[in-house]
Amino acid sequence: MMLSARNVSWAAGGAEILRDVSLDVRSGEFLGIIGPNGSGKTSLMALLAGIRKPKSGEVLLDGVPIGTLGRREVARRLALVEQQAETGERITARQAVELGRTPYLEPLSPWSPEDDTIVEAALQNVDMLHLSSRLWHTLSGGERQRLHIGRALAQHPRILLLDEPTNHLDIGHQIGLLDLVRRQGLTVAAALHDLNHAAMFCDRLAVMQGGQLVALGAPSDVLTVECIREVFGVEAEIDQGSDGSCFIRYIHSHGFAPYGIIVRERCTAEVDCT
């Protein structure tokens, strides 16, 4: 199943947020969408999910304009995990994940033992089964984020859209969840901040800058010293390993470091650029 944006643009409050963006999320791939704050990543994710309608251009789900499909039909194929999604309802962790089964519930198809099994598996996958009876408002931000991903997995989508899914998570759960998503065999598009994570888990990267798509390709082709400097305003050193892996080391220049001291921040995590 493929999700495509064709020359999409979007504006809000008279300001152009996205301009003429075209890309395909190919069947079975993990596409990372990277870029600095304000580059249009979240707006692009909303368009891809069909939550917002483009000012111009179109989004296609398996070749069909997503705006022509019913919300239930879209929800059975595609799930979105947003940056911030809260509720004032007094629900438990398990009930939050059960919401993922909503697209499949109809008068003639009530809740079933199969739904229970799917929800249990989703809770287990995001390491929240032991907290399934806890009330939502008693959970930490990281625990809530893991439940959002659990809800999306319980939805049994074929395409998973993640908008900064590792927000509020410690490093262990960041890597664990991205690895979990990678192993689901889904078509995935994720807006990510951490370039090392993007290189480690993504098949291709789409680079956003100023509302435009400025680069698209394999991590090893996209994550260059020049690209990182131009898009993120950061100096970096990239070491390629003989096995195709690479190391990204960020360099704090004297213009940013306190008291004019040059500080080198060395990343010791190996990232896969294949």
Rank of each mutant, 00 (worst) to 15 (best):
P110R: 04
L44Y: 06
G67M: 10
T117A: 15
E98D: 12
P110Y: 02
L161V: 01
D272W: 14
L180S: 03
H254R: 15
V59L: 11
N167C: 04
E164R: 10
L161E: 01
R134N: 05
T87N: 11
A206S: 01
S253H: 10
S140C: 10
P157A: 00
W10V: 07
L153E: 01
H137R: 15
H254G: 00
S140K: 11
R19S: 13
R52G: 07
G70H: 12
G211M: 07
R264D: 12
I261Q: 00
E226Q: 13
H254V: 14
L31S: 00
D127T: 08
C246N: 12
G50E: 09
S22M: 10
N37T: 02
I251A: 07
V222P: 10
E143A: 08
P36A: 03
R26T: 05
L3G: 02
L105G: 02
F256W: 12
T268E: 15
S253E: 09
A236I: 04
R204H: 08
I262Q: 01
V214R: 07
D127W: 13
V231F: 04
R90S: 14
E98T: 05
E230H: 13
L3Y: 02
R182F: 01
L169F: 07
P219D: 03
V59M: 10
S132Q: 15
R204C: 02
L205I: 10
Q174M: 02
S245F: 11
T138M: 08
S27N: 12
L47Y: 06
L147I: 09
E89C: 14
H168Y: 04
R76S: 03
D170A: 06
R264K: 13
V119G: 05
G260M: 11
P36N: 02
V231Q: 03
I149W: 04
E29D: 12
A121C: 06
L80D: 06
V59K: 12
V234E: 08
L123A: 08
